[in-house]
């Protein structure tokens, strides 16, 4: 299996090769934040003229920036490669790449709801590190599914509706999971579980989800498509800040992909669609490895 984390010394080597200080604009997905070592592990996009897409830990120039960074955030930053050291600077969270791919209408409706209900933020949305409350839904083969039954495994959760016609929305999130299923083929169901939860439960019955799952060649043991009553589904959505509204026959919705570790704690809650399946896979891999490491250390 491919594991693409390079280690810090390589950067120094790269730096030594460089004749003078080089600066590169980089985007990538945050995998872990290591405050003690002043580094952030990033699965980054290709850096033209310097290196391919890969996973690297980077030292930040200003350690305070690490306090605000979270796993699963898409960031952009400047990589400075000097003769003896390298670091990153100008780190900030990237909102989106292009307007069309951003669920902007959902952001406006969420703001309006918030303003009209005069509540400050959604209190029920989980923070990173919190334990995800247990929930019970039904999968595409009509089996009841509770989150707690996956304790000891890493769980990736995303939200879809099968009638979603926009390729950059649900289809993209489902495609990400299809890629995860491929990459972690041998660990599916045993070590890693994928949950695709519909937010259109009135339409997306288990049968409909089974059909949808087949189009993605989902292995029913490792990749479960979940439905339930509207109120149950809403409750689960609420934990992850997942919003949806009926909209002229379709649904306007936000996009969330969450990673839950072996202890049932929320590792990351990625909003949007501005990451690649490989980057999501790297995040899963880090979570799988990290948890293994902790378990071994105990």
């Amino acid at each position: 299996m491919r594991y693409r984390i390079l280690f810090l010394p390589l950067l120094f080597v790269l730096g030594l090769l460089a004749r003078s200080i080089q600066r590169y604009e980089v985007t990538g997905l945050v995998l872990t934040v290591d405050i003690a070592h002043r580094t952030v592990l990033v699965s980054h996009d290709p850096i033209p003229g310097f290196m391919d897409a890969m996973t690297m830990p980077y030292r930040v120039d200003n350690p305070r920036v690490l306090d605000t960074l979270k796993a699963g955030e898409k960031i952009e930053f400047t990589l400075v490669v000097g003769k003896t050291s390298s670091y990153i600077t100008n780190v900030h969270v990237r909102e989106y790449d292009s307007w069309e791919r951003d669920p902007a209408q959902n952001r406006r409706l969420a703001l309006l709801d918030e303003a009209m209900r005069s509540k400050a933020g959604s209190a029920s949305t989980l923070s990173i590190g919190q334990t995800v409350s247990d929930f019970s839904l039904v999968d595409q083969t009509n089996r009841p599914v509770t989150l707690s039954e996956f304790r000891g495994k890493v769980v990736a959760i995303t939200f879809i509706y099968t009638r979603c016609p926009l390729p950059d929305y649900c289809m993209r999130l489902s495609n990400n999971f299809a890629q995860l299923q491929k990459r972690f083929n041998t660990r599916m169901g045993r070590d890693l579980v994928l949950l695709s939860i519909t937010f259109d439960p009135d339409h997306d019955s288990p049968d409909v989800l089974a059909k949808y799952g087949e189009t993605w060649k989902a292995n029913v043991d490792g990749w479960r498509f979940l439905t339930g009553t509207l109120s149950n589904v809403k409750q689960v959505c609420g934990m992850f800040g997942m919003n949806f509204w009926p909209d002229e026959g379709l649904l306007t919705h936000s996009l969330h992909t969450a990673i839950v570790d072996r202890e049932g704690k929320l590792v990351a809650n990625i909003e949007g669609n501005q990451f690649t399946a490989v980057q999501l896979g790297d995040l899963v891999e880090v979570t799988l490895t990290h948890a293994n490491f902790q378990a071994g250390a105990r």
Binding site: R108, L109, L112, D113, M116, W245, P246, D247, T252
Partner: peptide, 11 residues
């Protein structure tokens, strides 16, 4: 239209 409609729906 979406915001108009959402304001009604949330009322």
């Amino acid at each position: 239209f979406s915001e108009f409609y959402e304001s009604i729906r949330s009322s």
